[in-house]
């Protein structure tokens, strides 16, 4: 088995039949907004909670009346790790740092941390940026605010 070639397709490039479509494609919407340099979440029209990343069902009230909206890409670094042994898709990037950030609206999101390790500390203010080398959700980077 040649494992350097992807066995599983992640990105769909075909034509979608949208007739009778009942799917709330929150991930596709999130990734489309990432392409525009925006972070997004799902806004629940029943209880007004915004969840990041977006979800098709509200975790607070269970409503499916959900709309994907842009949110502020600023927050603070909650935790992080520098990874020295990565999967094949990141083999050429090691060591690299990933972290979990709490956004200003209280929601949390994981991303690559593009900040020198010596400057990392708990609650460091960060802002979202986007890597042109990657596709979709993988483009998210955290830089110093």
């Amino acid at each position: 088995m040649d494992l350097d070639r992807p066995l599983f397709a992640t990105f769909w490039n075909g034509v979608i039949d949208l007739e009778h479509d009942s799917i709330n494609r929150v991930i596709e919407k999130y990734e489309r907004l990432i392409e525009e340099g925006k972070i997004s979440g799902s806004k629940c029209h029943a209880c007004t909670r915004i969840m990041v990343p977006p979800r098709p069902v509200c975790r607070t009230c269970g409503s499916t009346d959900i709309e994907v909206v842009e949110v502020e890409g600023q927050g603070r670094l909650l935790t992080w790790t520098t990874i020295y042994v990565g999967p094949p898709s990141y083999e050429n990037n090691v060591p690299y740092t990933v972290g979990i950030v709490e956004l200003t609206n209280g929601e949390r999101l994981t991303g690559i941390v593009d900040i020198p390790v010596s400057e990392l500390k708990y609650d460091l203010p960060v802002t979202a940026a986007f890597d042109d080398e990657r596709q979709g959700a993988a483009r998210l980077r955290w830089k110093k605010a």
Binding site: I27, T81, I83, V98, T110, G111, I112, A137
Partner: peptide
């Protein structure tokens, strides 16, 4: 989508 694509491993 939200972890592995960003290089998160289990360690």
């Amino acid at each position: 989508v939200f972890e592995v694509s960003l290089g998160v491993t289990f360690p």
